[in-house]
Design a protein around this nucleic acid. Sequence first.
DNA 1: CAGAAACGGGG
DNA 2: GTGTACGTTTCTG
Length: 595
Amino acid sequence: METRNMVLLDIDYVTQDSKPVIRLFGKDKGSNDNNTIIALDKTFEPYIYVIPYDIGLCQHELENLGLDKIERIQKKDLGQNREILKVTLKHPQDVPELRDDIWNLSQVKEIREHDIPFYRRYLIDKGIFPMSQIKIEGNIIESSPCVFSASENTLLLEIEKPPQKLESDFPELKILSFDIEVRNPDGMPNAEKDEIIMVGISGNMGLDKVISTKGQHLDFVEKVNTEKKILEKFAEIVKNYQPDVIVGYNSDNFDFPYIKDRAKLLGVKLDLGVDGSELKFLRRGFANSASIKGIIHVDLYLVMRRYMHLDRYTLERVYQELFGEEKFDLPGDKLWQYWDAGGESLEQLFRYSLDDVQATYKIGEKILPLNLELSRIVGQPFFDLTRMTTGQQAEWFFMRKSHEYGEIAPNKPSHLQHSQRRGKSVEGGYVKEPEKGLHENIVQFDFRSLYPSIIISKNISPDTITLDEENSYIAPESGYKFLKEPPGFIPSVIGQVLDERSRLKRKMQKSEDPMEKKILNVQQEALKRLANTMYGVYGYSRFRWYSIECAEAITAWGRDYIKKTMEKAKKFGFHSIYADTDGFYATYHPEEKEK
DNA sequence: CAGAAACGGGG
DNA sequence: GTGTACGTTTCTG
């Protein structure tokens, strides 16, 4: 038996002898040669929860379906203890196949946690976090790349650091950015006819170049003879460089699909994966994600759309916003003319290509740390996290907590439920239209984090909603009631996030080490963003813990607090001239003060 | 006017 | 892949 430490970059499963095998892709960051490690775990099995009407009869029905691993277990469902059935299946693909048969059984009331991808189930159940150090134990079955395998009855993983401790070692990542240019005489490029003329590559290990079939006179250009050679060179550089992360801009929908199409046309193999697998595309609804096994491909366009609010998210616009300087830009529809013209124009095109790929790299360098932290906090793979909405990020964080608390998670809403939810709107915060005119001697009042305070102090949660008048908080307007005790699931988790953020902020303020300060700042920023998302999730129509009652109660209490505060202020002579949600502006009129 | 379709980014 | 984006704007019948 051998042990290794590695940073967990990626996870999936493959099927061997019709059994699922979890694969953990990591890098041994302790070693000098940046070794890739693939750890295999054959000991994990898929399962679902069944809520029965009569547990004995239900168990019998399930056995009649041919299911042989059925356990009676205790779980909480929105705070209520329940005896339910855990049904273990042989293969993840059995779940969608058997789900309907199980659902049709007369004693089955509900099926829960039946839609959790197998690798996510693994991360949650094992309590391991992507982008963190994990310790693995097993037998080496191959040396290059290093493949580990857990023996039949041993536990493969040991959690190096407890999940609560966020400030584990910040992994130094090898990042590679890339960007292609295409000769496009007819507007937007068409992969069937328009050739790739340049591939720009930039990385943090002293790599800045453009591969092209022209331009031998420029020092940053590597000239090759054919388009096919450009693609081969690109593949070669990626394989030699061994990046942890590849970044592009709109690369899910443009660069990688284009490269793939041209490579197919020209007969180039793009076996870039650390296991030798080819670049492939994962379907996500109507969109695709470009995926390379063992390397995390991040499309920065998707990340930037969540990170900041802009009217447009072009590379130029985002770069200017982040760095306050203009990028060197050329008109997209004329790029082919610069290429054909040669001379000065061609040189400009080369500079544009280099500038684009360097800008992409700089954007990645700037925003990846925050997303890296979010990946470690939320506990989902970095690749997945960068493609999730903030609502989904919060939900997967709650999914982990739910498992930790011994709760079974609510199901995702059905199509019908979802459309019904979307039809309902929640009244927002109180807004008083500003009084016209120029006001002097203005005072300002703000509640510090109004909504989170309300959720926590009023214990607003789907598992605390009650009809009991006695021991509950009663919301204004609607009169929804929430138990004072015990603490609800959602308020508890939000409370934890806020407490952890305060702890990190205090630690950051005390810290003397600038590097540590910087890391702590990113971590507290990640928690702040997560918390900010959490206040709105009750109204997010796809949220498993969606509750219109909770959403309405929060804003109703918010309106109540701000209005009461304004009334009180008025008695002291403060005349409010404008208010919005959690604060107001007022002018002071001592003569109006109540005596 | 409602529901369908297009759009974003990329060259 | 234990799966099928997303929220908004513009078009069309």
